[in-house]
Design a protein around this nucleic acid. Structure first.
Lengths: 137, 137
DNA sequence: TTGCGTGCAAAGGTTTTGCATGGCA
DNA sequence: TGCCATGCAAAACCTTTGCACGCAA
């Protein structure tokens, strides 16, 4: 990965530390900003975005785009190879709830799409639309 | 389907007719606006968006979001009959190609999401993002 | 000292909303 | 006539960019 970073700044260290402390959690850039503001240690929005971009390039963070009207979600995935900890997203069309799903079963689809249809699926970008259990009642 | 439309307006008829005339083609809201402007029959942006929203709700149009900094793509998919003739859509993140997939295998996922995760999946609204065979080479 | 990183403010671009007007029933 | 749909303009929204200052090396 392109390692453009040359300086180790305070902000970078703090952002790294925070994200590493909440692996697998999904948050928006605004959430991360809010966290530091509440800690009495505000960090500029641009810096958050720039650091996130770096970590995405380095494969440390995943970016999820649900739709362009809601902010993107970011998740720290550590150095743990991308393929394994894949996360799927289901969005309820009724209540708008977003469900994060870690499920090995779905990897069969990944396999199937590739071998049968030659399509290399990127689960990160994909959102399953439907009705959640709460709304079906 | 929630049929909120009560009036059949000129604009709606023209938008319907145009989209139906280019099935499978994907275009942005701006593209559609431009089309009517070039035809000497401009239609307001808000109207385009409002009509598209209605058609999405009705399952007639699909919306594709690559990332939130580029405009969304819309595609007319017709009245894709009920559950049986299910058609899946894969969109290549690289070349933008749209792949229509008829595949019974996918119904296993539908079953799995429902029984294991209580999520009633609506394949018609879902888009699989990834890299197509041509672009993987 | 050098020059990258930060943070503020402003830009950028798409989509949504408010409101007066016009068209459908 | 009643009321929804339209369209303009402006708002809303997230994200990116420009620029001066500060901090790491």
């Amino acid at each position: 990965m392109s390692e453009k970073t040359r300086y180790k700044t305070q902000q970078r260290a703090e952002i790294d530390a925070y994200l590493e402390s909440v692996p697998g959690k999904h948050m928006t850039a605004a959430d991360i900003c809010a966290h530091f503001r509440e800690q009495g240690r505000p960090i500029g929005t641009s810096t958050i975005y720039r650091q996130l971009e770096r970590m995405i390039d380095a494969g440390l963070v995943k970016k999820y785009v649900i739709d362009q009207n809601s902010p993107a979600c970011f998740e720290y995935v550590g150095g743990g190879r991308g393929e394994s900890g894949s996360c799927f997203h289901c969005k309820c069309e009724k209540c708008g709830k977003l469900i994060h799903l870690h499920c090995g079963e779905m990897e069969l689809i990944e396999e199937h799409l590739l071998s049968r249809h030659g399509f290399s699926w990127n689960p990160m970008r994909t959102v399953f639309y439907g009705i959640c259990g709460d709304c079906r009642d």
